[in-house]
Design a protein around this nucleic acid. Sequence first.
DNA 1: ATTAATATTTGTAATGAATACAAATTTAGA
DNA 2: TCTAAATTTGTATTCATTACAAATATTAAT
Lengths: 143, 143
Amino acid sequence: MNTFEYLLEHNIKPSVQRMAIMGYLDSHRTHPTADEIFNALSPTIPTLSKTTIYNTLKLFVQQGVAQSISIDEKNEHFDANTAVHAHFLCRKCNKIYDAFIKSKKLPGETELKEEGHKIDEAYIYYRGLCRECMEKELNKQNN
Amino acid sequence: MNTFEYLLEHNIKPSVQRMAIMGYLDSHRTHPTADEIFNALSPTIPTLSKTTIYNTLKLFVQQGVAQSISIDEKNEHFDANTAVHAHFLCRKCNKIYDAFIKSKKLPGETELKEEGHKIDEAYIYYRGLCRECMEKELNKQNN
DNA sequence: ATTAATATTTGTAATGAATACAAATTTAGA
DNA sequence: TCTAAATTTGTATTCATTACAAATATTAAT
Ligand SMILES: [Mn+2]
Ligand SMILES: [Mn+2]
Ligand SMILES: [Zn+2]
Ligand SMILES: [Zn+2]
């Protein structure tokens, strides 16, 4: 799937900036923040403005080519994967890990629907200590 | 369960301010923000400071007598119910509804544990249109 | 009861991510 | 080419949250 066509199919005019931001999001599945995207792209597009990053990401979310991840209190993160999937934030290294979902029924979903609410978005967030960080802590102790 | 004992059991010294904030959280299960709590309590405790609200809520979360709900991008919400349960935010009226969870296994949890991560917190968020708001919209059309 | 040490609260200043806004630039159409 | 619309940019602003230090309250020691 090429970025140009993908944006067009979602009614987003593929400008240089939009292509670059979508390209970055698609090739870096690390759930970057607006700031991280700006720092990554600004060397190659020196005129790039942070406002454009914010505007574009908002547009991407509206048009359904990205989702906003609010697992981190401090910063909004973004994900080119728009499918419903779980996220795990390591409180030590701040990395965000993906976890895919097997069952179709999400917890509490049926109850909410039975009460007559209409669900448009679903998010599953976990926080804790990732394997990598846990191993680092163990190595410290065994030295 | 009385508030005084409850705070003590969780190693929180029950000051007037802390009692009031815990009392409010416990009796208003509407997932209030720091600002809402301040506006509600400041008439009865005129010297109350907003900083105290923030400090106290942070302490409550640390000591496990409240949880922080980050379903709303704009404001942090708080909940005296510390059990893992789902939340539904209506994007029209901004009310946050509870939904209780039947199954013990949360989506993606097993996968994350198998990868060696240690999960400490779990959050399930939904967004959409609540029944009340949907009915209001229907009434508008049929007039 | 005084005093001193500690804990808590308060008010104000600072932070910083996100937004508002208007000017500048680019793109598309006549 | 000329014009209008769309997009981008830079700067100013917002506002929830935090930092900090002074003020007050609580507890412990003398
Ligand atoms: Mn993801
Ligand atoms: Mn709740
Ligand atoms: Zn980690
Ligand atoms: Zn509603």
